[in-house]
């Protein structure tokens, strides 16, 4: 990354972290509706991978990819609106929390809870680009848990078979809800499965935004130039529970402490300062994020809920 990209990456990471911390605090204060999901610990993956896409590329992020939604242009205000079930939220009160954050005008496909349904969906988008000879790429994400599902294997077999312009980021965050990786699969190296399907696969430090960006940029360029699909396993850690209600007491404290020492936002900030970026410049980005998120919450909380009379609208196109 050059200096501009690095500052841009920091901007999105601090905005993502600030959104996340604000959201968690609101839900603990009882200001939320239903549940929600924190992406704490995933900022380097969602920002680094998201930044590697071009404006015409399509992405299908999941519930721990807030940074991708934000940097694609989905405003904090609309996302808070969705979390709070407001009419001005992305799904107009139809879908819950971070699910259903789809906006094709931003080239974002919303996901559903049936993980990893986003993989075949994004693969279909890639197949549409291939069919139309468009120089576009489709990217999506999955967790270590989703990598055990049938659709993961069916889809990756087809992605390789059709040489689709497709990139998959596996966010290996060590846990599928309460189940640690060692109880999900016999192997420790998820990317190691993929050459068996004829796929290019690589593993990166998921807490290093520049490493994620570099690997994803390579994958996106390969896909765009007709070189076919790639899979990147980004190793990271889910720092809070599965969802807001979950205290995650099942995660050993030593494991959390180890990953906390490598917090992706703090680690990147330290690197930038060491590289000569004045701390005040980063503080200014932090402050701008705090201001933006506070304003977004004010707008979303004041926005009207949907009209119950509209419940039947939109079932059919």
């Amino acid at each position: 990354m050059n200096e501009t990209l690095r500052l841009n990456a920091y901007r999105w990471m601090t905005l993502t972290r600030t959104f996340d911390e604000t959201m968690v605090a609101m839900w603990k204060q009882g200001r939320g509706i239903g549940g929600t999901f924190s992406e704490r610990g995933h900022e380097a993956v969602s920002v680094g991978a998201g930044m590697a896409l071009g404006p015409d590329d399509v992405v299908a992020p999941m519930h721990r990819d807030l940074g991708t939604y934000l940097l694609r242009g989905m405003t904090p205000e609309r996302i808070f609106g969705n979390l709070l079930g407001r009419q001005m939220g992305v799904s107009g009160g139809r879908d819950a929390n971070l699910h259903g954050l789809g906006d094709l005008d931003l080239n974002i496909i919303g996901f559903i809870s049936h993980i990893p349904q986003a993989i075949p969906t994004a693969l279909g988008a890639a197949m549409a680009f291939r069919y139309r000879d468009e120089p576009r790429v489709a990217m999506t994400f999955v967790g270590d848990g989703g990598s055990c599902s049938g659709a993961f294997h069916e889809s990756l077999n087809m992605a390789a078979l059709y040489n689709a312009p497709f990139v998959l980021i596996i966010e290996n965050n060590q846990y599928a809800y309460s189940t640690p990786l060692s109880q999900e699969m016999k192997i420790a190296d998820i990317a190691g499965r993929l050459p068996g399907y004829g796929l290019a696969a690589t593993t990166v430090d998921g807490n290093d935004v520049e490493a994620v960006y570099a690997a994803t940029t390579d994958a996106v360029e390969r896909a765009r130039s007709g070189g076919g699909p790639s899979v990147i396993e980004a190793r990271t850690m889910r720092m809070l529970g599965h969802a807001i209600h979950d205290g995650a007491q099942y995660v050993p404290e030593a494991l959390l402490a180890e990953w906390e020492s490598r917090d992706p936002v703090r680690m990147f900030r330290t690197r930038l300062i060491k590289g000569g970026v004045p701390a005040e410049d980063l503080d200014a980005l932090d402050q701008a994020a705090a201001t933006e998120i506070a304003a977004a919450v004010r707008v979303a909380e004041a926005a009207p809920l949907p009209d119950p009379e509209s419940v039947g609208e939109g079932v059919f196109a």
Partner: peptide, 12 residues
């Protein structure tokens, strides 16, 4: 997955 792929194609 091929039906899921049709979903993505149709969205495009």
């Amino acid at each position: 997955s091929f039906t899921g792929m049709a979903n993505g194609m149709a969205l495009m």
